[in-house]
Design a protein around this nucleic acid. Structure first.
Lengths: 193, 193
DNA sequence: TGTACATCAGTGAACGCGCGTTCACTGATGTAC
DNA sequence: TGTACATCAGTGAACGCGCGTTCACTGATGTAC
């Protein structure tokens, strides 16, 4: 049956939230339209009332994931200032919990490889998300430096690489060693002159 | 018809080489058994004379990719010494050609995210490959340092993160900016005391 | 060395399954009067 | 405000397709004598 405008907007929000989580947990290829719609508490047929294709869902879900992160960063920035927000972002990024639970974590670490093989809309969402995040990190962590933008991109790459390579490790020792080593390197980015 | 022992060994080698390339180009989920067997110049039915499953192929192909890299590193080490081999490995890693052609490149940068979601044998191949590669980098780049092992893991994570995040970028400017920034950070790993 | 036979690598058709997508239908919502 | 009707969000069956895997078959290879 037909749903009200608000109900439909709420459905779309629910689909996107579950998609953003599931894609990060299982990869773009590892999640089906049925998986997403079931998680959102609906049947799969209605999916195409909200999105033109699974690809479009992936692009929107990626935007959604980046937007959540930006929102949390901004809230923290309002409350504690840019520098503290950046430091807190980095410390949360490097916690074992982030390695263990990709579903709410960084989409770059979880999906970077698949995004590189995805179509235009997904890549565009990635570019925008990374640029936006790098801008925040640049201001918060390297505000006074002339090469703040470059250093923020390097920090982002180190963080994503650390969590991705740690997640792939089967042995707990290797996993923790990678997280400790990459984390130390990432923290050093902040200290440099 | 039946093939000779050498012909069969050669078939297996051909299957693994194409699989190792295709998986890095299109991801583990983006390559089918038919794709691999066609690339190797055979029909798909014979696949199961060589491997028990696609999962087993993925694990063996990953071993194959890591082994090629280790072999090249060792050859370089014999010819030019450990330090030069490490430096040359890093410089080749950071070339735009590596970002553009994943097929012969680092399996960590190309497949890290998918490996994290794969089964035991793939993860085991990853652990062994990363450990082996880190040992070589530790000796070549940080031989005299007490924390050489940790620094090698951090360098590996930075390199993989840089190439993965650069590959995902749609815009050429962002891609080059990430590669330059991550590359500068990776090279700094070598300079530190 | 030559012969007869068992083995088995590779072929190609076939399998069941899950995928993305489509569509006729339903009935509550939104709109026109 | 009340009524009649058009709209359309969500349902669930159905579609064609490609997937991983199986299997009967073929004929060259390997082996036993």
């Amino acid at each position: 049956m037909r749903q009200s405008r608000e109900a439909m907007a709420e459905s779309r929000r629910r689909i996107l939230d579950h998609a953003a989580r599931l894609f990060r947990e299982r990869g773009l290829a590892g999640v089906s339209v049925v998986d997403v719609m079931s998680a959102a508490g609906m049947t799969h047929g209605g999916f195409y009332k909200h999105f033109a294709s699974k690809d479009e869902l992936a692009a929107e879900a990626l935007k959604n994931a980046f937007a959540s992160i930006a929102r949390a960063f901004d809230d923290d920035m309002q409350a504690a200032g840019p520098s503290a927000a950046a430091r807190s972002y980095i410390e949360r990024y490097l916690q074992p919990g982030h390695v263990e639970r990709p579903g709410q974590g960084c989409p770059v670490a979880a999906l970077g490889g698949e995004i590189a093989r995805a179509g235009g809309p997904v890549r565009a969402a990635y570019d925008q998300g990374v640029t936006k995040l790098a801008r925040r990190l640049a201001q918060g962590a390297f505000g006074q430096s002339v090469d703040a933008g470059e250093r923020a991109l390097a920090l982002l790459a180190t963080l994503a690489g650390t969590v991705m390579t740690a997640r792939a490790a089967q042995g707990g020792d290797l996993r923790l060693a990678i997280l400790a080593a990459g984390g130390a390197a990432a923290r050093k980015h902040l200290e440099a002159e």
